[in-house]
Amino acid sequence: MDKLEEYRKYRKELVSLHSKILKLSSINFKQSVTLLDILEGKDIVLESGIEKDAILDFNVYRKIKNEQNAASLYREQENETNEKEAILLSAMEKADGLLYEIVKINKEKNSILLKEAENDTEAVEVIDVGLSETLNKNTLIFARLIHLSQFSLTSGMEFLFLKEHKHYLKQRSRKLMKKINSGNISDDRFIAYFKLNRTDGLPAFTQEIT
């Protein structure tokens, strides 16, 4: 089985898992939108379509208690999982939102090589049909990667920025994280880049999963 075929199977499984996890009674949606600072009275105020995906992503992956996210809690509560679900859940427990530089794009293989913008780490291969067709190397991408054995895939939402703003984004995100100080660095970083996407983000590409 080639990587693209494997990617499509895992992508569909991931979408299904997200839907199941979001039904957990332990997820506090109001707390999530409050942390993102998008609640005005009883109304959630969104500025773009990608923000809806960001809210759902935050509810699945933000730390709820004892450094556990909703994927971790789902894994504990649900005994019946298939092989791909088990693999995904294990990876989802460790998934973190980070800013990445694009090292290489291979449209023929639907792959992108991404390298962390903050740390000198080895580039990882991400399989994604939509992103590989639309991104260019002058773009930075904030994404939550699900690392599998052969490749990685995104959790399904991304914030895009100009590469020339890298230094500013790194400095500004650190200042915002100190101000947010929710008690978890991963969540603080996500909230910071959610805010930065509003002020400095590029239009994000969205696609229907088939």
Rank of each mutant, 00 (worst) to 15 (best):
I127A: 00
M92C: 12
E83M: 08
T81V: 15
L113V: 10
K104D: 07
A86Q: 13
E122S: 15
G97Y: 01
A71C: 15
E76H: 10
S132G: 07
L99A: 03
Q150G: 09
N79Y: 08
K107E: 14
I112A: 02
I146S: 07
K94L: 02
H147Q: 14
A86H: 09
A95W: 01
V129K: 01
S132F: 05
L99S: 02
D120S: 13
E80I: 14
N106M: 07
N138E: 15
T154L: 06
L113T: 12
Q77D: 12
N138V: 03
N138M: 05
I146G: 08
S90M: 07
N79E: 14
N110G: 06
S72D: 14
Y74H: 06
T139W: 04
L114K: 09
T139P: 05
N69S: 13
I87Q: 03
N82P: 05
H147K: 15
A71G: 08
S152D: 04
L135D: 02
M92Q: 03
E85R: 00
E93P: 02
E116A: 08
A91V: 07
N82V: 12
L113N: 13
D96N: 13
A117E: 08
K109Q: 14
E93I: 04
K137T: 14
M92S: 07
I87A: 05
L135G: 02
A143F: 02
K94N: 06
D96Y: 03
M92Y: 03
M92F: 05
K94G: 00
N69P: 08
L98K: 12
V103T: 09
M92H: 04
N82C: 06
I127M: 06
L148K: 10
I87T: 10
N110D: 14
E122W: 13
L153E: 00
V103A: 11
E133A: 11
V126A: 03
T81N: 09
T139I: 15
R144T: 14
S111F: 05
L98V: 00
I127H: 00
I146E: 05
T134Q: 10
A71E: 06
S111R: 11
A95R: 02
V126P: 00
K137D: 11
K94C: 01
G130A: 05
S152M: 05
Q77E: 15
F142L: 13
I112E: 02
M92E: 01
A91Y: 06
L99H: 01
K104M: 04
D120M: 05
E118Y: 12
H147F: 15
K107Q: 15
N136Y: 10
A117V: 05
N110Q: 12
V126S: 04
S149A: 12
F151S: 04
R75C: 07
N69T: 13
A123I: 11
S72R: 03
E133G: 00
E133R: 06
N106P: 01
E76I: 13
L89Q: 02
V129R: 03
D96S: 10
T154D: 07
S132H: 03
L153G: 03
L89S: 04
D120W: 11
I127E: 00
I105N: 07
F142K: 10
E76P: 10
L98C: 03
H147P: 01
N69V: 13
K115W: 09
L140R: 06
E118G: 04
N106L: 07
V126W: 00
L153F: 07
S90R: 10
D128E: 12
Q150C: 07
H147R: 14
S152Q: 09
T81Q: 13
D96K: 15
A143Y: 01
L98A: 04
H147D: 08
E118Q: 12
E76G: 12
V129S: 04
